[in-house]
Design a protein around this nucleic acid. Sequence first.
RNA 1: GGGCGGUUAGCUCAGUUGGUAGAGCUCCUGACUUACAUUCAGGCGGCCGUUGGUUCGAGCCCAGCACCGCCCACCA
Length: 872
Amino acid sequence: MELEPRFNFKTIDEKWGNYWSGDGTFRAKVNPNKKSFTIVIPPPNVTGILHMGHALNNTLQDIIIRYKRMAGFETLWMPGTDHAGIATQNVVEKQLAKEGKTRQEIGREEFTKLLWSWKDKYGDTIIHQLKKLGSSCDWDRTRFTMDDEYSHAVKEVFVRLYNKGLIYRGEYIINWCPRCHTALSDEEAEHQDTDGKLYHIKYPIKGEKGFIIVATTRPETMLGDTAVAVNPTDERYTKLKDKTLILPLVDREIPIIEDDFVDLTFGTGAVKVTPAHDPNDFNMGKRHNLPFINILHPNGVVNRNGGKYNNLDRFAARKAVIEDLEKLGLLVKIDEHKHAVGHCYRCHTVVEPYLSKQWFVKMTPLAKPAVKAVEDGRIKIYPERWNKVYMNWMENIRDWCISRQIWWGHRIPVWYCQNCPDDKNMIVTLDTPKVCPHCGSHDLKQEEDVLDTWFSSWLWPFATLNWPKDNPDLKYFYPGSALFTASEIIFFWVARMIMAGIEFMGDIPFSEVYIHGTVRDSIGRKMSKSLGNAIDPLEIIEEYGADALRFSLIINSGQDLYISKEKFEIGRNFANKIWNASRLILMNVKAVDPKFDLQKTELDLASKWIVSRMYTTIKKVGDSIEKFRYSEAESLINEFFWSEFCDWYLEIIKDQWDNPIIQNTAFIILENSLKIIHPFMPFVTQELWANIHPENKDLGLQPWSSVQEKLLNTDTEQKMALIIELVTAIRNVRAQWNIKPSEKLNCILAADNASDQKFLNENRAMIERLGRLNPITIRDTLTAQKNTATGVVRTIKFALPLEGAVDLEAEKRKILNQINEQTKLVDGITKRLSNEAFVNKAPAEVIEKDRERLIEINDKINKMKQLITDLS
RNA sequence: GGGCGGUUAGCUCAGUUGGUAGAGCUCCUGACUUACAUUCAGGCGGCCGUUGGUUCGAGCCCAGCACCGCCCACCA
């Protein structure tokens, strides 16, 4: 079939994208004859739209899954999406707001219906986009974290943990998002350093003229103060110990308490205590039996407890409080103060430490075995430095707040009997109970809260395989092999999956974790919609092709990636190169001999060389992929295919296409190249493969090339390197002398020994072709001739007749420069060799190498000096 | 306040047991050599952040410092 002169990625991306997503090529089946290799996709949010981070993450997974599939594993790449509670609810709420409605107005049931219909309509968007990338998932298995089976697993886990005493409910200070109206876990509150203010406020002493000055960053919380704390050792306050203070603005009498927590050196050493709005104050409140006064509505507006500030938003209240204090002369000063402020990870609103009744998971018992799994190497994290991050978090783990006051998510499987007393009314069960087991009442009410989305995500590696049902898939594909994710997700997801896997499956969920970099723009900023610096991967696929997107992302994926549009040209160009090299070969290979065997055929130097290079590359690429060194793998492929195969080998054989050995060799190199490139650039390679092998067209199901050790040949590689060096030197001279490619030059090559002469003779055709030379003359010495320039390449000398237009002076200057440089090298080596310490202590082979080099360079210098004489 | 990572060519980065500093892009020169101008050939360009130490020898190992960037942390 005739190929177009350019790789037309548009039609080909579409053709194979459809093929792969439609026919189940990558269906994973239990196969006792094969080892399994499983990756679970980090499920993107149903609200998600493919961004560069996804593109990178999924390309990395696809490369290894395709590689392993070809390497003979039964591979499962489990796809799916995450219901993303808060994020999705926010999206649908916004939509509702456009119609002027709120979710409260339409009610929970209606709103949930709306959420589902939204999910049904848009939830597949990102799945389609992942297919465009070429992701070879088992699409038939696509899961959603709110599928019935999955929900069952979530409930099962909740009940099990509850029965084990690892889930409890209680009133604590949690991170509250006043915009999303829900509790957040500690991980979901993102702390950002903020330039804030530190307000110093006078609290008058009851019945006296004196006062205590407290410092705070959130003055509005004083409305809920129930004490002022000082350190017991603080002499400044000893005599005030038993006094009472009058809380300004509220006129509440509050005690002065003593607590070790207070830092004498910070502020004034006196701390206002707001037990309902600060975690530390909460603890102090517990210790000292203080009242807990909640001053905020869930939406961050001051409630009735705030007296005259009732109905003011928290920030408006702050302003008002400060103004009023100022009027009263109670505001001492305002200092600039940098501190970390928590923000909601979904809507970036400043979170409020808020006292409320929530559900928690006790984490320490779960963390212990998870720490051990990494400690003893059952789970390896790449790059290794993330180990510490993981360990540090695990060892300081805090209980996990899992309840959310939203409607989109797994409803907590807890019912409250309306007849039983509050401390005995709880029913925790998988199935909706009809009657209260304690009193028989039918008046039961389900817990309103839903679970944190991550409380379902942490089950992903086994819940997607229909756990808790015992089934062959679960047995065969669990535990998984590798996990790919970004560093932000280590705590949210990776660590928790490890804990859940060990707890519920009794085994780690995966043995290798690869943490990849963040995609940034060309000046290092994170790509984000709000900054407007995001590059849309779909746009890149349109403009450069999916293969280009994948290739360019990976080649830059050593650490964080700095991406600009131009970078995708590299990938596009490489895809086009593959296309055209194939085109050349397919045009010239008339007959492929199925019995042709490289091992049994006598090959010319160049062919032996390229075959050896190919197997070396195959070996190295495999090693690199196994070690997650993807960009290295791509560089190896690029070097081999483009530089060695296209630029050298295909040029060398250009006039030998009528030789069947050459045809077959080139064809084999092409086939193997397509195979090793395929995991990286599946589309172009698949299309070409289907051209070559229409009867067996699925390249992704072909076996990975096996390395034929016998065909690895260092001697050949060295010899060819010599030819390359010689030809490069000749080209160099040509370029300097400004000789047109069409013009053939005469060339005299001199070698002072028989074996080198033989070597040159055997390969003269290649040298002549590559150097664009007339038939070369081979002599045993190079006689100095007028009008003859000589250069030196190792032991082989070459000479070219000068043409009239050559700038002799410039040529001489250049050679003199070279002599200069080489002389410096010689000086360096000579100095080292005359250093007694070096000669005595350095290994013999290092010294020997130096000596050889010295001779070699001196030889070169002499030849160049001769050349100067010749040029004169 | 702790921890981690980075600092190598103008830019982005390799440099895997310490033993001649590499690649891609950019730039310059030349070429439409019938697979590819999304190409080919050639070239310019580095006291490897800084100071000290270990060593015959340091981009690589050790210590300090300086910037840059992340992450974690309940000093109001």
